[in-house]
């Protein structure tokens, strides 16, 4: 590692440093969600039966659909990087656009899902929820917080990719200088990874 450290001094642009910085940032996201997963794990352990019952409210189909949507968006994200590296700016832009579109569809699904639950009265502070068991209250508390925070990240990711599209258009991101798109991609994939864990924990335990 030490020998590589020296390159930085001479090259003005240090892609390696940018990537390291991004990865460290991803770790902060990882432990941010990690805290929530810790809470989830403990409550699931102490309220097993309640969690099973509460999870029956979740629609596995929508969950699985959203998983597929996010996985596919991850694919288009990485393809956009490949495209720009191959030199086809238009294709890269197309893939970035599709990624944002999938993000949007994901959120739309999420919106319908949330409204459905809220319609059923399973929302924080509602009398219906408060009359249920403690495990139910905790399950839905975690459900809203975790998917909500995740959704927030999807929105941020979409904004980031939109900025990347602009950069691509303006030739800030080019065939030989695409580190910005690359780290934006890392962020998008992390969102995907978090969903990969959220999906079984909320939809598949009933």
């Amino acid at each position: 590692m030490s020998s590589e450290g020296n390159v930085a001094v001479h090259v003005h642009r240090d892609d390696e440093a940018t990537k390291l910085g991004m990865w460290l940032f991803l770790f902060t996201e990882l432990t941010l969600f990690g805290g929530l997963f810790l809470i989830y794990a403990v409550y699931r352990f102490t309220h097993q039966a309640d969690f099973h019952i509460a999870a029956q409210n979740m629609d596995t189909f929508i969950g699985a659909l959203n998983t597929i949507i996010l996985l596919t968006s991850s694919l288009t994200m990485v393809l956009s990087i490949t495209a720009i590296r191959r030199g086809s700016k238009k294709l890269s832009l197309l893939f970035q656009g599709i990624t944002i579109f999938f993000g949007f569809i994901f959120l739309l699904n999420k919106y319908f899902e949330w409204s459905h639950e809220i319609h059923l009265g399973n929302f924080p502070g509602s009398e219906i929820l408060l009359s249920k068991s403690q495990g139910d209250i905790l399950f839905f508390g975690l459900y809203y917080v975790m998917t909500g925070l995740h959704g927030l990240h999807v929105i941020i990711g979409m904004i980031v990719i939109a900025i990347m599209m602009r950069f691509t258009l303006k030739n800030v991101i080019t065939r030989n200088n695409n580190i910005k798109l690359e780290v934006a991609g890392l962020y998008w994939h992390l969102i995907d990874i978090i969903w990969i864990f959220l999906f079984p924990l909320f939809y598949l335990i009933s």
Binding site: E182, G185, I196, P200
Partner: peptide, 27 residues
């Protein structure tokens, strides 16, 4: 089982989509 499958998926995303396979050891 669900968590193991999730871990395998994560591994794939990390190594291929996130290019970890071709990064150096620091990463």
């Amino acid at each position: 089982i669900a968590l193991i499958i999730a871990s395998i998926k994560t591994y794939l995303v990390l190594t291929i989509f996130m290019h970890l396979k071709i990064e150096n050891n620091t990463f």
